[in-house]
Write a protein that binds this DNA or RNA. Structure first.
Lengths: 228, 228
DNA sequence: CGAGTGCTTGAGCGTACTCAACGCTTGTGG
DNA sequence: CCACAAGCGTTGAGTACGCTCAAGCACTCG
């Protein structure tokens, strides 16, 4: 089972965008209410129906967040890397959430309880602004995702996903898939078979070049965004 | 064009969930920075690429928020009724947004400028908490929408949508479609033809009964949620 | 009354899913 | 060291869901 520790992971909290602007004194306040915990691969940090009321920040490792639809099929919502957080729905919504969070590898997280976080937000309004920014970015991404589901072909969604993996600076045209094809299929709303077939098609059309199972070179970013 | 007015629409702001807990004195501060504006049917309150940096609250009428995908197809994101707001992406995100907001009928809105709102949030942290709550609910809804797109059939999405229209209290089993079938199709990610056909199928199976073009009686809520 | 809009119904077709088998890699135990 | 199982990715065949295009019908409004 998950191993709990009272250690203060100052470094962990420091690298979270919503806290990185604070002074040392303010950080001290926060570290008082942070709990660190470690989960083994495959363990669930929380699951649908939990009354979990903590904000969970990934320190080391990665979490896989997914939902189940009414009919029981799962969809990967996102993968969390160090510095990213989850649990805001349980924090601000009284309703039962439908999220599952599973450790992909051995993962260490920092957690802050609902009541403690609300105290922090009331004391330091600037944190709220940071959280608001993070949440509105998430809305934007999620809406874009929904729009792609509803208006784009599977092939186009896969192509757009690959382009999104390119870093903004464009120092390279090689992307690395952060998950296997089963999870990728779940994320873009298709099946592993179709992912395999479409990757092959994109390669046949010389839009991409597969370097290894996870590494892909983007050959024609523009045409990937506007497949015909 | 839009008609601008300096009138204080206290009632408008009062009914917004994020402000309804404030004292009269606090409300006075807010009313100082609120601008009222009216748009005729079909006018755009803002469009993709705008540097608009205002929070827009619907006072009277309704707004249709939609996005365009990379390939140019539009998807209805949501309809705004009085008391609901939009523009948070432009407020907290520096990036260009891809939203369009169109008045469905003659519509009056209240607007607050980015800088003014940020001052308010810093002065009254409790408002931030309300906004955080509203945004996290929106994330939940949008994620659910995305999950349905990626895992459910068109028929199931339509059925789930109808059930969602039922009020929580369940005092009635008659729902009223808040939009025409063209917009409904755009919202659930299909075509008007398919909406028409699927509604007919659901009626043939005795899951629903169409009372008029917009009014529908839900006959079997459970089976609508779990179509086979 | 005609024009415009929204909804319905039909026919044909293509995309992507399901089911199934096979190859490849990796890790485990005999 | 090899055998085998397990997981992942690939490929094939068949099918069906939902889209496109097109025409017809109902209702509203000027």
């Amino acid at each position: 089972m998950a191993h709990q520790s009272g250690l203060s992971h100052r470094g962990c909290v420091r690298l979270v965008p919503i806290f990185n602007h604070l002074t040392d004194n303010q950080m001290d306040d926060i570290m008082k209410v942070v709990q660190s915990e470690t989960f083994d691969k495959g363990e669930l940090v929380y699951k649908a129906g939990d009354t979990s009321d903590v904000l969970t920040i990934v320190n080391k490792g990665s979490l896989r967040i997914y939902r189940l639809s009414e009919s029981g099929k799962e969809q990967l919502v996102r993968m969390l890397k160090p510095g990213e957080f989850t649990g805001e729905l349980a924090l601000f919504n009284e309703t039962v959430h439908e999220h599952y969070a599973e450790a992909m590898v051995k993962t260490t997280v920092c957690q802050i309880k609902r009541s403690d976080l609300q105290d922090l937000l009331m004391s330091y309004p600037s944190i709220s602004l940071k959280v608001l920014q993070a949440l509105s970015s998430r809305i934007d991404e999620t809406e874009q995702q929904a729009t792609r589901f509803s208006t784009e072909s599977t092939e186009q969604r896969l192509a757009s996903y690959l382009v999104d993996l390119l870093p903004p600076g464009k120092e390279t045209d090689v992307v690395e898939l952060p998950m296997n094809q089963k999870n990728l299929a779940s994320y873009i709303g298709t099946t592993p078979e179709t992912v395999s077939r479409k990757l092959k098609e994109l390669e046949d059309m010389n839009y991409i070049k597969r370097l290894s199972s996870k590494k892909i070179r983007i050959l024609d970013e523009i045409r990937l965004l506007f497949l015909d």
